[in-house]
Write a protein that binds this DNA or RNA. Structure first.
Lengths: 125, 125
DNA sequence: TTAACCGTATTATAGAACTAATACGGTTAA
DNA sequence: TTAACCGTATTAGTTCTATAATACGGTTAA
């Protein structure tokens, strides 16, 4: 069973999106692996303190992307192969970096300053 | 009069937020300067193809932050000093980098890989 | 077998974001 | 002065997000 230990709802984006992203991040990190069991909708909604329908929406989106499989009455499991993991990785990681680079270039930040800023903040200011 | 030439509505965030951000990015880049005139609500709503009320909300938020001043019947102008620009800069730039770093650490990306990825994408893949 | 879980579905409600239409009074230039 | 712009305000309707309550049938282990 995968863990939601450090999951907290924080940014302004939809909760179901945050859950989808959390799962994808776990898969990229290797913390969540193929064939692992997902917590049930009811359990996860109780753990996170959100509505079961919100969890259902997140799971439905993950299922549409082929990242999990659900079987009525039984439960849901992660179903990813190496190819999918590569796709998810570029979706999340490269997508984020591309957005930051675009934003920085609009602010006319130099490549050197960008690299320095990333390093500084990585080490904790 | 400040320009909205390259402004396009794209991500899923509220349009008024995107407008506020666009103005702030322009101020950081020096493209938008103190005492410059803002386009009128009606003109900008026509240019962007969005509702005047959406522009009004963006301008109200900018006014509440002290970034612009509006005068009924006359128009709106940018009102920023060096101190404000520094605050805006750290709001946007550092905020973005912090979010990326947090996300990358959750994905268990190394600092070296992060730096390499930033450099690669900066140069265009 | 049956109780306790599953996934799935439906209906209703509420707030935020956005659109739409309209109105009022202030400013400014012809 | 007056027409053409300003900022500002109000009311109404739609879509999306999320909550809430409930129901139905499938799976599984005691």
């Amino acid at each position: 069973m995968i863990s939601f230990e450090h999951f907290i709802i924080e940014d302004g984006s939809p909760i179901y999106s945050q859950i989808v992203r959390h799962i994808k991040q776990g898969i990229i990190a290797g913390v969540i692996q193929n064939r692992e069991e997902m917590p049930s909708r009811r359990l996860l909604s109780a753990l996170l303190g959100v509505n079961p329908n919100t969890i259902q929406k997140a799971y439905r989106l993950l299922e549409e992307e082929g990242i999990i499989e659900s079987h009525s009455g039984a439960g849901s499991w992660v179903t990813v192969n190496e190819q999918q993991i590569k796709v998810i990785r570029s979706q999340l990681l490269e997508g984020d970096v591309r957005a930051l680079v675009k934003s920085m270039k609009q602010m006319e930040i130099s490549k050197e300053e960008a690299a320095r800023l990333l390093g500084d903040i990585w080490d904790g200011n």
